[in-house]
Computed example of a mutant assay.
Amino acid sequence: MSLFEHYQHLMADEAFILAGKPLPEGLLLSSEGSLQTFYAPFDHINEQARIVICGITPGLQQAMNALNEARRQLRNGASVALAKQAAKETSSFSGPMRPNLIAMLDHIGVQTYLGIDSCERLFESHRHWVHYTSALRYPVFLNGENYSGNPGLLSRASLRNQIENHLSEEIRALPANCVYVPLGPKVGEVFEYLLTLGLLRPEQVLSGLPHPSGANAERISYFLGRKDKAALSVKTNAGSLDAAREQLTKKIGQLRAPAR
Rank of each mutant, 00 (worst) to 15 (best):
residue 258 P to C: 08
residue 247 Q to E: 15
residue 39 Y to I: 01
residue 173 A to H: 03
residue 177 N to S: 11
residue 201 R to Y: 08
residue 243 A to I: 01
residue 111 Q to H: 15
residue 75 R to H: 10
residue 2 S to Q: 13
residue 208 G to D: 03
residue 90 T to L: 13
residue 8 Q to A: 14
residue 252 I to Q: 07
residue 204 Q to C: 07
residue 109 G to S: 05
residue 3 L to V: 13
residue 161 N to A: 13
residue 146 N to A: 04
residue 124 E to W: 14
residue 11 M to H: 07
residue 234 V to R: 09
residue 57 T to R: 05
residue 147 Y to W: 02
residue 199 L to F: 06
residue 12 A to F: 06
residue 83 A to G: 07
residue 217 A to S: 13
residue 42 F to D: 06
residue 115 G to C: 05
residue 53 I to P: 03
residue 62 Q to Y: 04
residue 43 D to H: 03
residue 178 C to V: 06
residue 210 P to S: 02
residue 3 L to K: 05
residue 72 R to A: 10
residue 176 A to L: 10
residue 34 S to K: 11
residue 40 A to F: 01
residue 73 Q to G: 12
residue 160 R to G: 02
residue 167 L to C: 05
residue 40 A to I: 03
residue 8 Q to C: 12
residue 226 R to D: 15
residue 254 Q to R: 11
residue 226 R to Q: 14
residue 191 F to G: 00
residue 2 S to L: 10
residue 189 E to C: 08
residue 260 R to P: 09
residue 163 I to D: 01
residue 78 A to M: 12
residue 93 F to Q: 04
residue 134 S to V: 06
residue 64 M to K: 14
residue 86 A to G: 13
residue 95 G to A: 10
residue 58 P to G: 08
residue 8 Q to F: 08
residue 215 A to L: 10
residue 92 S to A: 14
residue 22 P to N: 07
residue 256 R to W: 14
residue 105 L to E: 08
residue 120 E to P: 04
residue 25 E to M: 04
residue 255 L to P: 10
residue 148 S to E: 14
residue 168 S to W: 07
residue 147 Y to L: 05
residue 4 F to K: 03
residue 51 I to P: 00
residue 211 H to R: 02
residue 11 M to I: 14
residue 237 N to I: 11
residue 26 G to F: 06
residue 81 A to H: 09
residue 52 V to L: 06
residue 70 A to D: 08
residue 60 L to P: 15
residue 140 V to Y: 00
residue 82 L to P: 10
residue 168 S to N: 14
